[in-house]
Deep mutational scan, measured.
Amino acid sequence: EVTIKANLIFANGSTQTAEFKGTFEKATSEAYAYADTLKKDNGEYTVDVADKGYTLNAKFAG
């Protein structure tokens, strides 16, 4: 089991951190699915991958 950390950075400057656990593939998929649920209210996002894929920095356009 691994933990994927998602740093969510919103256009207004606020941030949120979420963690997803499971296999690498499952946890990564859940992190992206969570970011997708936030698109409606926060706009499209881009992701910078860090820490060999164990940290995802998602920046929302607003």
Rank of each mutant, 00 (worst) to 15 (best):
Thr3Met: 08
Asn12Phe: 04
Ala11Cys: 14
Gln16Glu: 12
Lys21Gln: 10
Ser29Ile: 13
Ala31His: 03
Glu19Leu: 14
Phe10Met: 07
Lys40Phe: 10
Thr37Ile: 10
Glu1Asp: 11
Asp48Thr: 15
Asn42Lys: 10
Asn57Arg: 02
Phe20Glu: 03
Asp36Asn: 08
Glu25Gln: 10
Glu25Cys: 11
Lys52Gly: 15
Ala50Pro: 04
Asn42Leu: 09
Phe24Asp: 02
Ser14Val: 14
Ile9Lys: 07
Gly22Ile: 02
Thr55Lys: 04
Tyr54Thr: 06
Ser14Arg: 13
Lys39Asp: 01
Val2Ser: 05
Glu25Asn: 09
Ser29Gln: 14
Glu25Thr: 09
Glu44Lys: 08
Thr17Asn: 07
Glu1Tyr: 13
Lys5Gln: 08
Gly13Ile: 02
Asp36Met: 03
Thr37His: 10
Phe60His: 01
Thr28Gly: 01
Tyr32Arg: 07
Ala6Pro: 00
Thr28Gln: 09
Ala61Gln: 14
Thr55Ile: 09
Gly43Arg: 01
Gln16Ile: 15
Ala18Val: 15
Glu44Tyr: 09
Glu1Cys: 14
Ser29Gly: 10
Val2Arg: 05
Glu44Thr: 10
Ala11Glu: 08
Ala61Lys: 12
Ala27Gln: 01
Ser29Cys: 15
Thr46Arg: 08
Glu25Leu: 09
Thr55His: 05
Gln16Tyr: 12
Ala50Gln: 14
Thr28Phe: 09
Gly22Val: 02
Gly22Phe: 02
Gly22Asp: 05
Gly13Asp: 04
Ala33Lys: 11
Glu25Trp: 07
Tyr45Asp: 01
Tyr32Pro: 03
Thr23Gly: 06
Asp48Lys: 09
Thr3Lys: 08
Phe24Gln: 05
Ala18Lys: 15
Ala11Thr: 08
Thr3His: 06
Ala33Trp: 07
Leu56Arg: 02
Lys26Cys: 12
Ala50Glu: 13
Phe24Cys: 08
Ala61Ile: 13
Asn57Glu: 07
Gly43Met: 03
Ala6Glu: 03
Lys21Gly: 06
Lys40Met: 11
Ala33Met: 10
Lys21Glu: 06
Lys26Pro: 01
Tyr34Thr: 02
Val2Pro: 03
Lys5Trp: 08
Lys5His: 10
Ala11Lys: 09
Ser14Thr: 14
Asp36Lys: 02
Glu1Arg: 10
Tyr32Asn: 03
Thr15Cys: 15
Glu30Pro: 02
